[in-house]
């Protein structure tokens, strides 16, 4: 998880995060029930993009990838942004994902993980005191999230819909 280099889009995998300075763009593909968290310091023009899968790491005994969970991933990324010259007090957030992808009757199985992810991310950001500027959460479509660290804009790509900038 080094500071990403190069000018092209920097890809953020599932259960991972990357931090970059302007003018780099961070991209994470195919968010379903997962939630993408973009944090941005508009003065230092540095930001991070996190792709979490689950809300709560305390439910698991053996956490090898803290970026997989909302509760551990967000503080981890904030710390990294700080080390890269960002001021935690200036950070703002944009969120996407948390969809309910599957249609079916097996509710026990589905247990709307997307909704729980979204809820947890909101709670944690509130606790830390980071304002959410925009969000594209819920629904039943997968989303790709492209975060431009030169201006803080987040572009959302979905199948069968035009691009949306938040």
């Amino acid at each position: 998880m080094e500071l990403a280099k190069g000018t092209a889009e920097i890809q953020v995998g599932i259960a991972d995060y990357k931090v970059a300075h302007s003018p780099h763009r961070l991209i994470t593909l195919g968010l379903g029930s997962c939630v993408g968290v973009a944090l941005y310091d508009s003065v230092a023009k540095v930001g991070g993009l996190l792709h979490i899968m689950l809300p709560d790491s305390t439910q698991f005994n053996n956490v090898t990838k803290p970026a997989k969970f909302a509760d551990t991933g967000i503080p981890l990324m904030i710390d990294h942004i700080k080390r890269q010259g960002g001021n935690p007090n200036r950070l703002t957030a944009k969120l996407a994902g948390g969809a309910q992808m599957f249609s079916g009757l097996d509710e026990k199985f589905v247990l709307n993980i997307g909704q729980r992810n979204a809820q947890m991310v909101r709670e944690i950001l509130k606790k830390i005191g980071i304002r959410i500027l925009a969000e594209e959460l819920g629904g039943n479509r997968g989303r790709t999230m492209i975060f431009d660290t030169s201006n803080g804009q987040v572009t959302i790509r979905t199948i069968g819909s035009p691009l949306k900038v938040i």
Binding site: I14, L31, G32, M53, G104, G142
Partner: peptide, 27 residues
Amino acid sequence: PTVPMFATDMLGAVLSTSLVAGGYVEE
């Protein structure tokens, strides 16, 4: 087998959601 669930969308979104919902979150 239980009742099948269905989704059509981006591979990443469909697969990750399906695995998470099934509790398969290990490395």
